[in-house]
Design a protein around this nucleic acid. Structure first.
Lengths: 338, 338
DNA sequence: ATGAAAGCGCTAACAA
DNA sequence: TTGTTAGCGCTTTCAT
């Protein structure tokens, strides 16, 4: 499995290997004639430059890392990951970079999975040039540790006020306000939000702040119960609200999956959505269109956000200035459930 | 950003750089004393071997490619991709490999996305050592072309009888038979299957064969209408079945997403599932538990399959024998919809 | 048990 | 405009 090298191309074309290199890298001063000859030799020999050699020589790497922090890889079907990753890879490829994906989990099964140290090690070994950290539970301390590693990093969907990293997020506060206002407009007065808590620096904080502010402004009852982003937790939360007798007239879920779980629970409790209780989500995943009833939710432009994250990371790798952080606007999508 | 090299470690430990290399690669003949000294220098200087140099010298690469063929990357939320990819990455990482993901699409937007040539190019450039092709539309001709590239390859969820590649799949024929038998046992006599067609070598063929065989054996009416795996196509197919008047008493969808779309259509048509019409899926994604009614479906062990695919690819890279192909068994999951 | 020499395939710096 | 020299960081001979 011996492969064609620069030198062989040079011999074939009757030039020095340096000239071939110059052709490949589009150096100016090369006679068109020579250039054509070299190109045809490359074609004839089916030559492909060895990236390893190039990377070694240039001390740079054309791989980006998309790291999902705190996402359980066994939690297979979260569409969020799909959305973010697809756009991430597409944008990176369009810029000539390939993408390696890492799952960074902690917890019982940590031993078989990469910790932050694994990420660092791969970076130090030149497996990738920079990373976008997608996730909800990276602490400011952890971020500080990583900053000391000089790892080019962009934070996705979370950030820490005290830190300087570029971050890409969306206006979750305002999104939740839109949602609350919609419920209020529909005549709802007792709202309950299902949301993971204690998730510092993450997207859940913005949702909570927006919820509380909008409810206070509207003068409606506001309560928060806990979920963990999963269908199951939405189902359980809804059940508990009815069994315990709180029974609000609107249930807002922090994401679409919990909302779907809550709607299923409502069905099992013989409740009519939206007549007996309104339910809303947050994400606007594809399936929100196909639930019964279809889900009123907030549209998050995950694809645009992921593409922007890649661009920011590339800018960070390129220049020396810190790329701008961005907050994407969100919009309300009214369907049947609220 | 100059990084510590072997030589610096050697200087620090007072040995030759060769000795350091030997320590790193666990060569036998090294005095424990020397070894300890070297290791402490590595620790002290925070040395990490440069993978690019290693790869160049060893002419080998520790990256695997997970390629989704014919999957539209904009078709963001297909849980299938999540399931396969998560398990793939976890298994690869457990074996010391990292994973690069590629989307291989054809069609109008092909220009901005990698074609098979892009895959080949990255392989020739040593971006990865082997690939698992996940997908449904690779033709035998395309496979032959790739075989000529000497690209170590494992096919996932599709295969071609005439070719020699290792493939990992599931017993879709038998799965569909289980499903048909279940519907028949429930007293259904007029079954319609929603399935993409003309998908040679793919998973849809097995589903079709199993469907037709089981229906023939049971002596029930069998019809097939077309879908394209999406929610929307399931919705439209169901609608058409009623508008056109076919109105079977059981609708089987080739996957869970189409089933969810069909159930939503049933709701819009004021049909009760399963009283007026039974609906079943195929996949057993998480959301099948939370639809209303919950979805009777076939469980596909996507995670196990993906892990097996990685193992097969590693075996292929390691040894010279062709790893065995595997067909995973499927099982019926009865819920409310059928 | 350890060190010295050579070279993987490429590009940057200089010379011609 | 093109060719020569050197070396990126590592491992594989081979000598000591």
């Amino acid at each position: 499995m011996t492969r064609v090298t620069l030198k062989e191309v040079a011999t074939h074309a009757g030039v020095s290997h340096q000239t071939v290199s110059n052709v490949l890298n589009n150096h100016p001063s090369i006679r068109p004639q020579t250039r054509a000859r070299v190109l045809s030799s490359i074609e004839a020999l089916d030559y492909h430059p060895n990236q390893a050699a190039k990377a070694l020589r240039e001390a740079r790497v054309t791989t980006l890392c998309c790291a999902f922090y705190g996402h359980d890889p066994e939690n297979f079907t979260d569409p969020y990951r799909n959305l973010v990753q697809s756009a991430f890879i597409a944008e990176a490829q369009a810029n000539g970079y390939s993408v390696t994906t890492e799952f960074i989990t902690h917890g019982p099964d940590e031993s078989t999975l990469p910790s932050l140290d694994g990420l660092r090690q791969r970076f130090m070994q030149r497996q990738f040039g920079g990373v976008v950290i997608v996730g909800t539970t990276l602490t400011p301390e952890q971020y500080q540790v990583m900053a000391a590693w000089k790892l080019p990093i962009v934070l996705f969907d979370h950030h820490h006020p005290g830190t300087s990293a570029t971050w890409i997020s969306a206006d979750y506060e305002r999104g939740m306000e839109l949602l609350v206002d919609h419920h209020v407009t529909q005549g709802r007065t007792r709202l309950t939000l299902i949301l993971p808590h204690d998730d510092s620096g993450s997207t859940s904080i913005g949702r909570r702040i927006g919820f509380e502010r909008a409810c206070a402004r509207a003068g409606v009852e506001a309560a928060i119960v806990q979920g963990d982003w999963s269908y199951e937790s939405g189902y359980q939360a809804m059940r508990t609200l009815w069994v315990d007798g709180q029974r609000p007239d609107a249930v807002l879920a922090g994401n679409d999956r919990m909302a779907a779980g809550a709607m299923r629970a409502a069905h099992d409790l013989a409740l009519n959505v939206p007549d007996d209780v309104a339910v809303s989500g947050f994400d606007d995943f594809e399936f929100a269109l196909y639930t019964t009833p279809s889900l009123t939710t907030i549209h998050i432009p995950h694809g645009d956000m992921a593409r922007q994250a890649v661009r920011a990371l590339l800018a960070l790798l390129d220049g020396n200035e810190l790329p701008e952080s961005r907050v994407f606007p969100l919009s309300l999508v009214v369907r049947e459930s609220a």
